[in-house]
Write a protein that binds this DNA or RNA. Structure first.
Length: 614
RNA sequence: GCCGAAGUAGCACAGGGGUAGUGCAAUCGAUUCGUAAUCGAUAGGUCACGGGUUCGAAUCCCGUCUUCGGCUCCA
């Protein structure tokens, strides 16, 4: 635990102390530090609301002021159990009821591990520590919000109230923290997306379904053009596939019915439905018969791989043509639970910058490395350096991961190996694999510190077996190819959402929805207007995304509006410019006119016009 | 899906049982001005939707939908 985490965790104990003074019957579960603060989970009949915060903070202040020492004590398992039974853990002294969550936590501590309790004043808690020396070391703290969480993160367990707060060494640091949070909120892609008219979500279209408005579409198109160029140079071939496919396809892949929960329900043919209705078939019966494969239908595709597999498998393949790399911006649909949806970053329909590589086992390592370097090129080009790499492995205890364990071992070794060549640290996380294979994910944080998986590279020995894929080897016999699934952006929606926050809406020139706006000083002056319109058409013809502000506002008003709309470059033209055949330039915010390779073509046009002043 | 909060004009928000408000945006008019907002007028609303209580509901109650904060989930 870092110094600040220790402080915050200690503050969680102070919070529990305060709550117990107000509600002695409160039962506590866990109270760890988290990024930016801490929480404590509590079971309490009274619903804690932000209105209660002042009262709780009052008690907390008292505890901090009392400057109690955090005293550590080691206990035997029996002693600890006895204490919990008497209701003396996470309690002020003891209470009538046993400390039930603490009892449960105690029973989960492995035999032989040291059991410790910490005491501050009259409050005692089962806790591994460490803690600060005295409560008064907490210089500043604040309760921030209350939410709910399942005990031990299991949705079958009861929901507890989770009270969040934060703590710092002093007030200045805390104020800086909240100021930073306020700034971060201004970058929220949902807010900027609305203000900058990048996308909308319309109830009558459906939750979690993104409508890309013209300005947002510009960004998406620019990203697609960018990655498209990279793909061509790396030997990928473009394909297009439909948005729906027959259920049988997904039965083979394993998506249906095993992932039926996370898909839109199947589309049943009209004829079939009619017959079933005449038979008086009930809905549940229909669902059963669809699952059992007695009734056919179509599925909105939850993934593109089966379609790409069918393209690969449309004729016999020779080892000479491998690797086959099939790429598509493929739109997929997934039934995310309503509470999981969030702006552009968690949606029900999204477009992956997907590709599937079919290769020989010997080619796997080189292909994975190629994919990883593509992801790094993408992130590097956009200046996104703040990401972590996660190698997702199967969870040996879970039945979700299908296929031969020895193949899994091979695939996992390949991922681990390739991740090792990245030159950045990575973590291995069991249970994070796809159902068909392990993966290497690039994970970034949004403005609120929530993690989102963007780029991903997945190694798959499984689907080639399920679909019985093969190629003819040099030895004349049939061999099984290995598949690699990869998406450097992940999805266009999520990536764009994260990108809006990354740039705080101040996109570099090549992505900016409006690259240049021409601001004439005097709209009444016909000669000047003709000149301004000439500049506008000149820019347009050179491929610059450009508009002209036709309003009768003063120039500072026009500038203010263009700034608010985050227009990358402003060309102010007045009489003086017209006479010189020039423009006066202004660049929005920190929008730089630097030498990012992707900006260069547009920059050249702008510079050429601008330099006429010189 | 679960727990909690919220939903008032295109956007940001105020109001809180008795005529629906402000700012920005929009429209019209005046202004023609050199780098962050010129002035005036007009228009814009089933106060999310459905039901209830009441002489009267945007306001109180119930339900639904959506959004937000978490949890769970994320092939």
């Amino acid at each position: 635990m870092t110094e600040i985490e220790t402080l915050r965790h200690s503050c969680a104990h102070v919070l529990a102390t305060a709550i117990l003074r107000i509600w002695p019957e409160a039962q506590f579960a866990a109270g760890p530090p988290v990024e930016g603060g801490f929480y404590y989970d509590v079971e309490l009949a009274h619903r804690i609301t932000p209105e209660d915060f002042a009262r709780i903070e009052e008690e907390m202040k008292r505890e901090v002021k009392a400057n109690h020492k955090f005293e550590r004590e080691e206990l035997s398992r029996d002693e600890a159990m006895a204490k919990a039974q008497r209701g003396e853990l996470a309690a002020l002294g003891s209470r009538a009821e046993a400390s039930k969550f603490k009892l449960d936590i105690l029973s989960g501590i492995p035999e032989g591990e040291v059991i410790t309790i910490y005491r501050n004043g009259e409050f005692t808690d089962l806790c591994a520590g460490p803690h600060i020396s005295h409560t008064s070391r907490i210089g500043a703290f604040k309760l921030t919000h209350v939410a709910s969480a399942y005990y031990k993160g299991d949705e079958n367990n009861p929901q507890l109230q989770r009270i969040y707060g934060t703590a710092f060494k002093n007030k200045t640091e805390m104020e800086a923290h909240f100021a930073m949070l306020e700034e971060a909120k201004k970058r929220d892609h949902r807010k900027l997306g609305k203000e900058m008219e990048l996308f909308v979500i319309d109830d009558t279209v459906g939750q979690g379904l993104i409508l890309w408005t013209p300005r947002g579409a510009v960004i998406r198109q620019a990203l697609q053009d960018f990655i498209g160029g990279e793909l061509r140079s790396q030997g990928y071939e473009q394909v297009f596939t439909p948005h729906i496919g027959k259920l049988g396809l997904y039965r083979t892949s394993g998506h249906f019915p095993y992932y039926a929960e996370s898909q839109f329900p199947p589309l049943i043919e009209r004829e079939n439905l009619k017959e079933l209705a005449e038979e008086g078939c009930s809905c549940s019966e229909l669902a059963n018969r669809v699952s059992a494969g007695e009734i056919d239908g179509f599925l909105l595709k939850p993934m593109n791989c089966p379609m790409h597999i069918k393209i690969y498998d449309s004729r016999p393949r020779s080892y000479r043509e491998l690797p086959v790399r099939l790429a598509e911006f493929g739109t997929v649909y997934r039934w995310e639970q309503s509470g999981e949806l969030s702006g552009m970053t968690r949606v029900r329909g999204f477009t992956q910058d997907d590709a599937h590589i079919f290769c020989t086992e010997d080619q796997v390592n080189a292909e994975i490395r190629g994919c990883l370097s593509l992801v790094q090129t993408v992130l590097g080009t956009l200046g996104m350096a703040d990401y972590r790499v996660r190698v997702g492995l199967r969870d040996p205890d879970s039945a979700k991961y299908t296929g031969d364990p020895s193949l899994w071992d091979k695939a996992e070794a390949a991922c681990r190996n390739a991740a090792g060549t990245l030159g950045v640290p990575f973590t291995e996380e069991p249970g994070e694999a796809a159902f068909y294979g392990p993966k290497i994910d690039f994970v970034v944080k949004d403005v609120l510190g929530r993690e989102w998986q963007l780029g991903t590279v997945q190694v798959d020995y499984n689907l080639p077996v399920r679909f019985d894929l093969w190629y003819r080897g040099a030895d004349g016999t049939q061999h099984r190819p290995v598949m690699i699934h990869r998406a450097p952006f992940g999805s266009m929606e999520r990536f764009t959402g994260v990108l809006i926050e990354h740039f705080a809406g101040n996109f570099p020139l090549w992505l900016a929805p409006e690259q240049v706006r021409v601001l004439p000083i005097n709209t009444d002056d016909e000669e000047l207007m003709a000149y301004a319109q000439g500049i506008e058409s000149e820019l347009r013809e050179s491929g610059v995304r450009c508009t002209l502000d036709p309003t009768g506002d003063r120039i500072n008003g026009k500038v203010a509006r263009a700034e608010a709309e985050k227009v990358h470059t402003m060309f102010v033209v007045g009489k003086r410019d017209a006479e010189a055949g020039a423009v006066s330039l202004r660049v929005h915010g920190k929008g730089n006119l630097g030498a990012k390779p992707r900006d260069e073509a547009i920059l050249a046009v702008i510079t050429a016009i601008r330099q006429r002043t010189l």
